[in-house]
Design a protein around this nucleic acid. Structure first.
Length: 168
DNA sequence: GCCAACGTTGGC
DNA sequence: GCCAACGTTGGC
């Protein structure tokens, strides 16, 4: 069992959106986490994530009203599969190179997994809090210049953030 | 909205 | 294969 952190712009796709879409997905209860166009992030998703892994849901690009931070927890709900949004010309994350891969019968250029909503924290654990907490020293998301949208988290750090987020 | 940090692209 | 130019991310 591994632990991860995924980022999303809160104003673009928040944990509330994930909760809504997972509910709308019915029995499946999960949505494909598409649009990742960074090789390292893709590799973490495609090669590292296993169904059942728990994932911190981080909102990036915060505002004073909705600060950047971890807002809740999701769960990996599938193994890796092709990210169809890369083949969709109308999609924001369309990639002609992925179409080329498809034509040549290669393995998909971009893959993703399904994500299920687990919980929204009683209060978000914002970046300031994360950086200030000695129990979270060394966590990747607090590192300057860290732009990965999918990254591993240690079990210790995962549990600490979940504990702080659900406190009170 | 600024800008530092980073990944990717493409000329050579 | 180097590296400058460019685009993007994301904190502030």
């Amino acid at each position: 069992m591994n632990y991860w952190l995924i980022k999303s712009e809160g104003s673009c796709y928040s944990i509330d959106d994930l909760a809504r879409d997972c509910k709308a997905a019915g029995k499946k209860g999960a949505v494909p986490w598409t649009g990742i166009r960074n090789y390292q992030a893709r590799n973490f998703m495609r090669d590292g994530m296993k169904a059942g892994d728990l994932v911190l849901f981080y909102h990036s690009n915060g505002t004073p009203a909705d600060p950047a931070g971890v807002y809740g927890v999701a769960r990996v709900a599938s193994g890796p599969h092709i990210d169809l949004s890369a083949l969709d010309k109308k999609d924001m994350h369309f990639d002609p190179k992925a179409v080329q891969y498809e034509k040549e019968g290669k393995a998909p250029l971009w893959s993703c997994v399904d994500m299920a909503f687990v919980e929204k924290f009683a209060h978000p654990v914002d970046l300031v809090e994360i950086k200030r907490d000695p129990a979270l020293a060394g966590i990747l998301v607090a590192k300057t210049g860290q732009r990965l949208s999918v990254m591993p988290v240690s079990e210790k750090h995962f549990k600490r953030i979940a504990e702080v987020g659900n406190r009170k």
